[in-house]
Design a binder for these strands. Structure first.
Lengths: 146, 146
DNA sequence: CCTTGACCTCAAGTCGACTTTAAGTAGCAA
DNA sequence: TTGCTACTTAAAGTCGACTTGAGGTCAAGG
């Protein structure tokens, strides 16, 4: 397969394929002239990458889940951890969704006068609701303290 | 209040407060010398900003939710839309979480041999599971087509 | 023979939300 | 008056996942 066929069959732009190759996430089996040649298995790898991304893994993490042969070797523990993370996010998002629905329906003239809304505000300020806000900065802070 | 008190009471770094001011999300009531002076209401505004961020609004969107006076004027329709978005995300994340839990427990020697896992892979590739992957690029593509 | 067009490389740009850095200034204590 | 410190500014840097742009190569078709 040349790159245009992979583009056609994966739906990803060629720039992304080149980028993934550069990152070591996929590999071409060789060149025909200048042009990359891909094995059919690359489509499966790309699907796996898409799945990983959708699950919330970074490209680097996904890269670490492939053996040198290109076959995936996924630790089940990592999957459980990610599932737990998702569970956490789901709970937060559910709370937020309900809060928003309430606020939208709330009869108070201003949201500021609604006790539920104020409670939600307080939680958000305290970082209780959505830690993802501070993900990067929290990590930085954590590593600076270390 | 000077900036250090706002820092203390909001938990946000001073750089963020200056950044928010520059963006027009908050305003100081004036200066004492060079130093910014903030009204007490700024804390409430900051809590509201945190809430908006936690709900998934961008800073620009949040900015548009404040009147020139600094009081919030939030259209209930926007809240409902965001709640629906969250609902969508929650469903996708729930599916993903269940998929991950299954994969972690799946007896197949390689995940590739598990039909459920393969189905999940297919969905992710098709962008069904987590559109957020393509949010920015999808928007760009949409605007290019326009 | 020459053009077209699909592919190539490498470097730089984008986006959002901040943070960091360098250099400057002002209020207050000694 | 001197010096400390907390504050100020503007500009540049960061992070992740790509995209874009400029300039180059090569095989095939008219």
């Amino acid at each position: 397969m040349d790159i245009s066929e992979v583009v056609r069959r994966s739906g990803l732009p060629a720039s992304t394929l080149r980028f993934y190759e550069q990152k070591g996430l996929i590999a071409s089996v060789g060149r025909r002239g200048l042009h990359r040649v891909f094995a059919a298995g690359v489509l499966e790898q790309l699907a796996l990458i898409a799945l990983g991304r959708a699950a919330g893994f970074s490209l680097d993490q996904i890269g670490a889940m492939f053996g040198a042969d290109g076959r995936p070797r996924i630790e089940r523990q990592r999957l459980v951890e990610k599932a737990d993370e998702l569970d956490q996010s789901i709970k937060q998002m559910t709370a937020m969704r309900d809060g928003l629905r309430h606020a939208a329906a709330c009869p108070a003239p201003s949201h500021l006068e609604c006790p539920k809304f104020r409670r939600l505000m307080g939680l958000a300020g305290a970082g209780v609701i959505c830690e993802r806000l501070n993900e990067t900065s929290a990590k930085k802070r954590a590593s600076r303290k270390a």
